[in-house]
């Protein structure tokens, strides 16, 4: 029992802080998305001179926002699900059902992380961006196209974070089943809907 709590506490602490960082970057990403999209409207409509890169830059930010923020939603119970059965079952049975569902999710994620790794490091990741460049010299004299893998890494990172959250949630359910009650709660745990 104490052992279980001793395992969960550090994992919980790590997740808490990693996800906080992820949310911070995600918030910056949203701000950039809005800014570059508005910049494009301004350049096209007012200056009659559209820019080539805002579209891709905004998508870049949206993908990273998703990868970095979705794990927080998962941890807080914000993934859409029909939870009637778990609510109808007695506590112990519900915890067992939840563990089963979490293991199914974990299986999906473990497959996904393997495929994601080979996709991101594979040929598709080598495609050069059509409009995004980074400087390769300190004096900005040489620029290189951003490879698609930088964008694809967003989902891979998101899946790794989801796995870490998933493991924590499984352990918490096991702890609940065994009657461990003195765990730090997940802040802001609630459900939120898309509509």
């Amino acid at each position: 029992m104490a052992l279980l709590g001793g395992v969960i506490r550090p994992i919980s602490w790590i997740n808490e802080h990693l996800l906080m960082l992820g949310r911070g970057v995600g918030i910056i990403a949203i701000a950039v998305m809005v800014a570059v999209t508005l910049l494009q409207v301004f350049c096209r409509y007012v200056l009659n001179n559209a820019l080539p890169w805002p579209d891709e830059a905004a998508r870049f930010c949206m993908l990273w926002m998703t990868g970095l923020m979705a794990p927080t939603a998962f941890r807080r119970g914000g993934f859409v699900a029909i939870d009637m059965l778990a609510l109808a079952l007695p506590r112990a049975a519900a915890a067992i059902l939840n563990i089963f569902l979490m293991v199914v999710s974990l299986t999906v994620l473990v497959f996904a992380v393997q495929i994601g790794w080979s996709e991101t490091t594979g040929l598709g990741g080598r495609f050069a961006s059509a409009s995004l460049y980074i400087p390769t010299a300190i004096d900005f004299s040489e620029w290189q196209r951003v490879p698609r893998s930088w964008m694809m890494a967003s989902l891979l990172v998101g899946i790794v974070l989801l796995i870490m959250v998933n493991v924590e949630l499984i352990l918490r359910n096991v702890a609940q089943l065994l009657g461990v009650t003195d765990l730090p709660p997940i802040p802001h745990a609630d459900t939120q809907g898309a509509e």
Partner: peptide, 11 residues
């Protein structure tokens, strides 16, 4: 799209 499909051809 090209990136996705050509990766499919490659693998």
């Amino acid at each position: 799209n090209g990136a996705e499909c050509l990766q499919g051809v490659a693998d």
